[in-house]
Amino acid sequence: MTPAPQAIGPDLTAMIACPRCDAVYRAVQPGPGERAVCACCKTVLIAPRRRAGQQLIAVAVAVVVLVVAATLAPFLAIEVAGRSNASSVLDAALAFAAAGPVAILALAVAALIVFIPVLRALLVIYVLGPVVLDRPPAPHAAAAFRLSEELRPWSMAEIFVIGCAIALVKIADLAQVHFGPAFWMFAALVVLVVVQDGFMCRYSVWKSLER
């Protein structure tokens, strides 16, 4: 590793600062499966995994397929006194569209449960694809990865799935409810999102984008 030209003294490229408490360390890459933790505030700083890139891309592709499929297929259906109705995720988002002043909520809900999860998955594929293939990083890969990280709290597909379960109980007295295929797709999505966040070592990604 070559020292940063502006650094007189310590080599800044070899250092890492805890984003939570500002403590500075000389970064030492732990082995796969091991973790480097901030001595001051216990934040996990580095947690590399073997073949994490391939796994993350596989998960991201699955997320895109699942969300698109689940958005179009019905996820719940009800039946009352011979009348029935099935609803897709898109219908749920658009439920607010008809309700006058709360119409902007339709857009927000669609973003939180469909667009943002898909966008994050696409960004991860875009950023990690070249890295996994040992190619130089894609143009603007750093900006893409930063955007994906900033969107993380706003990706709420998994919360929506739990919401389905609650909605079911709420109307269990009123009507007969059936699960559609999309419900199971979204349930699988919850697992994938958890896996995705657990496997992602941000430090390793940033390191690989530096080349």
Partner: peptide, 30 residues
């Protein structure tokens, strides 16, 4: 906390059975 908003969205889209039963979101959801 967003879960309650999603529950309202799900119910309002699902329970649309004409005269038999229908649910619509209120201003509190916004």
């Amino acid at each position: 906390s967003m879960i309650d908003v999603f529950v309202v969205a799900i119910l309002a889209s699902l329970v649309q059975l004409g005269a038999v039963a229908s649910v619509s979101p209120g201003p509190a959801s916004l």
